[in-house]
């Protein structure tokens, strides 16, 4: 069922047009907040009364990817979740149509915020989730105190027309989908222990004993196609909340100039280049990443007109 729409999207992309990201419309409060939390396997850490840090993982991983960063924020209320189709989320709730739009993931983030009635949220988005965060903040700016964008890219495919370098061609995206197919059974096998585990008592499993659960292969194609064929550049100027852009060296997915462009397009962009290399600084260099986020939060607090300490 994914194959049909996917080919259409690729065909459309070949004709030159990527899908422009659409900011979600205002959403009614979820009718069943508990169901929202359950299907996204929402967990919390840190201080329940601290300022809210909502961590939104990227493609290929689940909330497990944040494990090393979380201990650095014991004074925050750290809220973690799995995007539908990833981690321990309810795969049956993954909607190939809705989650074939980047805005669909932003809607999920807004639903989680509403379900927990989170206010003044600092939303941390990694990789593709950085653009999910951008869409969520554009849709409901009042909800967010600010954004932290880890290794963001608003468009992965080069755009010769505007001289934009995303780092990839459409053929590359084809290759990615083929790689996903090749890994289908390996990824399925990696999900198997989750399926057979005890869903009634996930909290019983010690954090580190739990497996590292990534994206489910049945959702991965749609997720990958959506994020790699969406162009979010036009939304960036509409995000009027403080936004920290964290950029790594030698990031295979987001070249340096992309991070520069993101920070420049954001009205309140704050660019910080990390010493860390690669695409996942929160995993490979959690100390440096946490320090950069803390420094930004301190700058943000200082810059606030009225003392909202």
């Amino acid at each position: 069922m994914t194959a049909v729409t996917e080919d259409q999207a690729l065909d459309a992309a070949k004709s030159g047009a990527l899908v422009p990201a659409v900011v979600p419309a205002p959403r009614p409060a979820p009718r069943d907040p508990a169901a929202v939390l359950a299907r996204h396997a929402v967990t919390e850490a840190g201080s329940p009364d601290g300022p809210v840090l909502l961590l939104s993982h990227g493609f290929g991983t689940g909330q497990d990817a944040w494990r090393r960063l979380v201990p650095h924020f014991p004074d925050h209320r750290v809220v973690l979740f799995d995007h539908l189709g990833s981690g321990r989320s309810d795969l049956s709730a993954f909607d190939h149509e809705r989650h074939g739009r980047l805005g669909g993931y932003a809607e999920d983030v807004l639903d989680i915020c509403a379900a927990l009635d989170l206010r003044d949220v600092t939303l941390v988005g990694h990789s593709v989730s950085a653009m999910v965060a951008v869409l969520a903040a554009a849709a409901d700016p009042g909800r967010f105190a600010g954004l932290v964008l880890l290794a963001p890219s608003p468009r992965y495919v080069d755009d010769p027309e505007t001289g934009y370098t995303g780092g990839f061609s459409l053929e590359d995206i084809h290759e990615l989908l083929e790689s996903l197919d090749s890994n289908y059974y390996a990824w399925s096998a990696a999900m198997a222990p989750v399926v057979m585990g005890n869903p009634d008592a996930p909290e019983l499993a010690a954090e580190l004993e739990r497996g590292f659960v990534g994206t489910h292969p049945d959702a991965a194609r749609t997720f990958a196609r959506t994020l790699f064929l969406t162009d979010t550049r036009a939304v960036l100027p509409r995000v009027d909340v403080p936004a920290l852009v964290l950029q790594c060296r030698h990031d295979a997915l987001a070249p340096l100039e992309v991070g520069d462009a993101v920070a420049a397009s954001l009205p309140q962009g704050d660019l910080v280049r990390l010493e860390a290399t690669g695409h996942c600084p929160h995993v490979s260099a959690p100390d440096e990443t946490a320090a950069a986020i803390r420094a930004h939060l301190a700058r943000r607090a200082a810059a606030r007109p009225t003392g909202a300490a």
Binding site: T61, D172, E175, E178, S182, N183, A186, F212, A252, V283
Partner: peptide, 29 residues
């Protein structure tokens, strides 16, 4: 790695390897 595998290695296998210390039977070319 060809580009597709490179993206998957970067986004999926590498974080898992760093967090858990291992990855097994990643399909690559």
């Amino acid at each position: 790695l060809p580009v597709g595998d490179r993206i998957l290695w970067t986004t999926s296998a590498l974080p898992k390897l760093e967090v858990t210390g291992r990855v097994e039977e990643v399909v690559v070319q």
